[in-house]
């Protein structure tokens, strides 16, 4: 979304001095906390209930592969580093490094998504689907929505990369990169929560 300067493009500042789009993005992220909060709360509410009610598995302990998920978590974490380096590059006016770091971020994001696809497939092979039990439903829907957020982020980053190579992202356009970055980091912190709360906690 663009800044709409309804006075013809030369309005210097807003009432708060803050960029409209950036304010929008932070409001959106604040709101998205409630979205993922609801999904995580659903998972936590149903955690252990299959076992307690004697419903058939697979149960989390039987399917989670902690070393594998740790590796993909690490990949997503590092994509936050490349993202912030991309922003730092364009703020200095370095479009070449911007493109490199954006591409790196997208590739790390895609790797994470590939890893998630592999993990889901492995779970299905072990007999866990959306329909199997409460764990299957709440796990796949939570991580699936996170994956969808990552996918949207990758699409945004790749679009910005294309625009940058057409010379349409310049130093003064760094806000566009900054906004995509905020979204990307948010997706990363959601995964930080999911990794600890869903995978690691007993």
């Amino acid at each position: 979304m663009a800044v709409h300067t309804t006075t013809g493009g030369h309005e210097a500042t807003t009432s708060t001095g803050l960029d409209n789009r950036k304010l929008f993005m932070w409001l959106f992220l604040g709101s998205d906390c409630l979205f993922f909060g609801s999904l995580i709360a659903t998972y936590l509410m149903y955690r252990g209930r299959d076992e307690a009610l004697g419903k058939p598995g697979p149960h989390p302990a039987e399917v989670f592969d902690i070393p594998y998920t740790s590796a993909s978590s690490f990949i997503l974490l590092m994509s936050s580093l490349t993202m912030v380096l991309a922003l730092s590059a364009i703020q200095r006016g370095d479009v070449r490094r911007l493109r490199i770091w954006l591409l790196a971020t997208s590739l790390l994001g895609l790797t994470f998504l590939g890893g998630q696809a592999y993990e889901f497939t492995a779970f299905v092979h072990e007999g866990l689907t959306l329909r199997t039990n409460l764990f299957g439903s709440s796990f796949f829907v939570l991580t699936g929505f996170h994956g969808a957020h990552v996918a949207v982020g990758v699409l945004m980053l790749l679009s910005i990369t294309v625009l940058a190579s057409q010379g349409r992202i310049r130093q003064q356009d760094s806000m566009t990169v900054e906004l995509a970055g905020l979204y990307w980091h948010f997706v990363d912190i959601v995964w930080i929560l999911i990794f600890a709360l869903i995978y690691l906690l007993p």
Binding site: M1, A2, V3, H4, T5, G9, H10, E11, A12, T13, G17, L18, D19, R21, L81, V84, L85, S88, Q91, M156, S159, I160, L163, R168, I169, R170, Q172, D173, M175, T176, L179, A180
Partner: peptide
């Protein structure tokens, strides 16, 4: 996200010195 910058005027810089790549 917009590709062009609508604001000709320079942005207001509220941020203090951002950390550099080394800190990141």
């Amino acid at each position: 996200m917009s590709t062009r910058h609508e604001q000709a005027a320079p942005e207001v810089h509220q941020e203090h010195a951002h950390p550099g790549p080394r800190t990141y």
